[in-house]
Every structure is written in structure tokens, then in C-alpha cells.
């Protein structure tokens, strides 16, 4: 079933049930180190990715470290 969400600030419609599904769809290796996910303003710990469910209207951020000062 497809849901409409906001992913990294942009509206998206996708067929993903969990954060784990979403990462697979987006081509992010779930074993990739140094990636973090927030769902509606709260961090979702890595171990909860496979089970964390996505609902319509969710605001999801996927981030990683980059060069910075």
C-alpha cells in the first residue's frame, strides 16, 4: 500500500511499511555505518529500523556525517 510521506524535506509517495523497507527502497544499505534516521522529530535507533512502521504524513530524515567546521 502506498503512503505519502515527507522524506528529507521533500514529499514522496512510496510503498514502504517500515523504516527498513524505506532504506532498502532508497538504496541505503541497512548495515551502512554512520547513518541515522529520525521519524517525526525523534531518532529511531538502528535496531528498531526493521520494525518501525511508517504512516501517511510521516516526516522522515535520513542523515550522515559530512565535512564540517
Amino acid at each position: 500500500m502506498s503512503v505519502q510521506i515527507k522524506l528529507n524535506g521533500k514529499g514522496r509517495t512510496l510503498d514502504a511499511v517500515t523504516i527498513g523497507d524505506l532504506l532498502r527502497l532508497e538504496g541505503v544499505d541497512a548495515d551502512a555505518r554512520f547513518v541515522a534516521v529520525a521519524l517525526n522529530g525523534a531518532v529511531v535507533p538502528r535496531r528498531q529500523w526493521p520494525a518501525a512502521r511508517i504512516a501517511a504524513g510521516d516526516d522522515i530524515e535520513i542523515v550522515k556525517p559530512v565535512s564540517g567546521g
Binding site: 538504496g27 541505503v28 547513518v35 542523515v63 550522515k64 559530512v66 565535512s67 567546521g69
Partner: peptide, 19 residues
């Protein structure tokens, strides 16, 4: 050494600064 946190660019790859 300081680093920043940014949204992933799904298209982009390469070696991460953190590695």
C-alpha cells in the same frame, strides 16, 4: 576534528569523511 550532519544524498556515494 569536527564534522557536520546532513541529509543523505541517495545518488551520491564515495568514501565518507568519517571513514
Amino acid at each position: 576534528v569536527t564534522v557536520a550532519m546532513r541529509r543523505i544524498n541517495v545518488a551520491g556515494g564515495g568514501e565518507s569523511v568519517i571513514d
